[in-house]
Design a protein around this nucleic acid. Sequence first.
DNA 1: TATCTGATGTTATATCATAACAGTCAAGGC
DNA 2: GCCTTGACTGTTATGATATAACATCAGATA
Lengths: 165, 165
Amino acid sequence: MTEHAKGAGFCCADHSGVANAQGILAQAEARARARGLRLTPVRHRTLEILLQAHGALGAYDVLGQLAAEGYGTQPPVAYRALNFLVENGLAHRIRRLNAFTACAHPAQDHRAAFLICTRCDSVTEAPAQAISDALARAALDAGFQLDRATIEAVGLCHACTDVPA
Amino acid sequence: MTEHAKGAGFCCADHSGVANAQGILAQAEARARARGLRLTPVRHRTLEILLQAHGALGAYDVLGQLAAEGYGTQPPVAYRALNFLVENGLAHRIRRLNAFTACAHPAQDHRAAFLICTRCDSVTEAPAQAISDALARAALDAGFQLDRATIEAVGLCHACTDVPA
DNA sequence: TATCTGATGTTATATCATAACAGTCAAGGC
DNA sequence: GCCTTGACTGTTATGATATAACATCAGATA
């Protein structure tokens, strides 16, 4: 995702990114402390950038912001910070979009599914315990030892469903 | 995926690709006929290539084979054929791998989940109706109008679970 | 202080994907 | 017959995503 204006007006109330970004950031910081993770300046800032974004951000979108703020200018800078956040449960990678989004519930370990709106590009994190359980059963039936899973749905978000075209 | 030797010996019995490739190909042809789809030479051959492969194939892997056989040599040739197959239910795109795999059950419309082995790179298509139902409920709860979904699990396949390391 | 480790930064390159346009060919209308 | 049309195939060129490999730096520690 590089074009973010698409859904302006539909995706959220105030266009300032994720609702309760401050609260989520605080949860993420707490999680990092609790686990001895080093939430360094680049990593912290990367998380903030994700939280302030509408929808998911591509690595190069993040890189652009980081570079503009005096951090490194090359792709690995962004990929490393993003991968760190993903590996430690502070962000998610949305494979369908080749993009990343802040985790909405960093306080808990949880299974998440992502609801991707094709009209406004918003990405919503939905609780996925039930889905995950069903997947675990399917894996078991296949003799497959499940590690992690990606569950991504595309369709129209609540706001966009109401709008004709 | 570009390296396919990784799991040789673990992923399947005879290393000749998908079990019952001929039967699946016949089903796919029937589906194409029934729907008036044009399974042209490139498309047909692309499907065969997927069926003969171990695991999923990257678009450039497919392209390499097509090019070697006298078809076009440029990326769009492969992407067009692959996208055609995916759009018409004859193949699946595995987003986690940036790769494609033949549909194992082209005779029926169905929901599928993919079990991706991290050791041997095999990709197994598992029935996903229950998972899909759970996802539909989650979407409904979120007021999300679900269109399609991607469900991909990573872990160890049955064969690789048995092998120590 | 010397050393080690993890983080950050760089250069360079690999990998995946599509836009835009030209040529081909079969089907159907005249 | 022959022309139009539309779908398909092919090309060139470029864009977008991602990582390998190596240099540097700061803080922890022996």
